[in-house]
Write a protein that binds this DNA or RNA. Structure first.
Lengths: 347, 347
DNA sequence: GGCATGGATGAGAGCGCTCTCATGCCGTGC
DNA sequence: GCACGGCATGAGAGCGCTCTCATCCATGCC
């Protein structure tokens, strides 16, 4: 199998045409007589011809590959299937357009150099970036590389909002949080606390803002505010803090499910009943949320869809418009996907 | 930034040498006078030269990329951070050797064609494959492509054991299960049941075998055996089945943590105490295992390390021996990594 | 019927790199 | 002092493809 690899030349000889004609057929260029086209097709199939992408991209200057860059400060990717799902959506969309997915996982500072060089080297046609913190050097790298880039999650670095053609896909964190907290209020809760994520991430900040919206506040009540770090441990700690204040809250909105799970643990340890004594709402709708005791009321976002959208946004920017009618005259723009409250036992 | 991209030629002119010499320096080939070498280095840095990999791989016939193929029958990748962690290990090892990671996620039957064509097309130097079920067409594709391949998990398709140069990395599932069940017996449990995973996966079968080993049995006691499917729901169902038999088990070894979590849920619903009435042990040591109520006793495998090992096995097969002493005369062979019991509250 | 027109096809250059081979230079041995 | 071996360097071919441009042929028009 290996080692035969017929070339364009071979196919041309086999079909009795020129290299150029075979190239036209293979690339779907118009202007080849149907009968000839068919003959070439048969030769391609018969010889098992597969284009050599190296040769192709040497002349076209396109690589047919997209880099997906995930900066994962430590453990996040482990505990959270978020990236896996997003990757799935991305992979599906890219595959549908015959683009390859180059995965780059960043762990250390040194990795940033490597990736910068790689992107600048023109080895990919575009990038999808997950930049978790506002001080992440990734956006700068993207800009420096001059590559078309789409971000996962609204970028929050200074000046991001002023960049005109910034592309990203985010979920409506603010509205999701609003729904969650509104739900708690509808259930008659009057002292709704919040456990925030790291506020240098736009998702955490947006969720806090949604919480405030639902309560009609401009500033959080310090007695009802605790900071977590998006981990279960952090959630447990934050819940303990909240319970040590008086009067204690009768409901908690946690910035994500991991922290909500931690909060549940603390509540259990203190002998408090959920939702009777304290109602709990999480965010993300991770799988474990449904198994928690009690099952977690939470906010769901269509993560896989977000991945697809990121890819298709990039596709459009690359000019590989997935829109067959060619009517996407309007340039690609950021996309915000809706969030939906999932009511279960915990609130 | 985009668009300048100096070529070898440009660097050669700048350094006042020939293209060949620059190539030698860039690729670390011996036989260039140190002073010249240094001069070329400076030119490279000054011009910001980055080799064009398309051109390079056109002539070398190597691509510098490795495909990671994950066949994910439906939802597995969501609930289980397993792949994410393994990817991390793989990514680290590949990056250390300047290889790119091409991720291919398979969902549908049609994807297998695409991937087969891609691999056969010589677009990558090797593959890492995760083939979950024994009837998966992936191994055949790998063989047909003639590419160096390393599998994640011991392949279980018919005849796999007869293939002489089959390479894989697996954890010692059998021994892990043995430890788990031995632990239950040491704690005085006499009726230890088992909830198996899908037995067409070697991991599930091996864990069942380890269970039998620890009990000194050749065949499972049907009264103490229930089948799950590696999901929480399946585990809950299997636990219910087991409890409906009499006499009921006083301990359960679940084939993975997800099923163990499901079992915990059923036990809780039935008002049984864990571990007092029924002790539970899981397998995998997922993050949520530690938060479960009670925290799950389980078996840990170093998944990230397994990923690294897969990559380095492939590297050796590719001749990019990571062994600087060059003493790896012995050919690469399958690797089995140890498993370790983590004792927590549930048993 | 001759000529312009336009579409289908082929010829050929060249993308940036590696690698073989020829060349040139040095030091060594006789 | 000269031939020779060995090492450093350069010249040049060619990897497989795309794309421009020239060529060819059939058609339509005057």
């Amino acid at each position: 199998m290996q080692g035969d690899h017929p070339t364009l030349e071979a196919v041309a000889a086999h079909a009795g045409v020129s290299r150029a004609t075979v190239s036209r057929v293979v690339n779907g260029t118009a202007g080849v007589r149907p009968e000839l086209r068919e003959r070439v097709r048969r030769s391609v199939a018969e010889l098992g011809y597969v284009p050599n992408i190296a040769a192709r991209s040497l002349v076209t200057r396109r690589t047919g590959a997209v880099a997906v860059v995930i900066a994962e400060p430590e453990t996040r990717i482990f505990t959270d299937p978020f990236f896996a799902r997003q990757l799935r959506g991305i992979g599906r969309e890219l595959a549908a357009h015959d683009l390859q997915l180059l995965l780059m996982l960043l762990e250390q500072r040194a990795d940033y150099d490597r990736i910068g060089r790689y992107l600048t080297g023109g080895h990919v046609d575009g990038t999808l970036m997950f930049s978790l913190h506002n001080d992440d050097p990734l956006p700068a790298i993207a800009t420096a590389s001059g590559l078309p880039t789409v971000f996962g999650g609204r970028p929050g670095w200074a000046g991001a909002d002023r960049q005109p053609d910034l592309l990203y896909v985010d979920t409506d964190n603010r509205d999701g949080a609003r729904q969650a907290v509104a739900h708690l209020r509808e259930r008659g809760r009057t002292r709704v606390a919040v456990i925030t994520g790291p506020l240098d991430q736009t998702s955490a900040q947006d969720r806090l803002d949604g919480y405030l919206d639902a309560l009609g506040l401009r500033e959080p009540d310090p007695a009802l505010l605790a900071h977590g770090d998006f981990t279960a441990e952090g959630g447990a700690r934050a819940m303990a803090e909240l319970l040590d204040r008086s009067p204690a809250p009768d409901a908690v909105f946690a910035g994500n499910d991991l922290m909500a799970t931690g909060a549940l643990r603390t509540l259990r340890e203190r002998g408090l009943r959920v939702p009777d004594d304290v109602a709990v709402v999480g965010y993300d709708d991770l799988e474990p949320a449904a198994w928690a005791d009690p099952p977690l009321t939470t906010v769901r976002q269509d993560v896989e869809r977000m991945g697809e959208l990121m890819a298709s946004l990039l596709l459009r920017r690359l000019g590989r418009a997935p829109d067959p009618e060619g009517r996407d005259a309007e340039p690609p723009a950021p996309v915000i996907t809706p969030a939906r409250l999932i009511v279960r036992g915990s609130a």
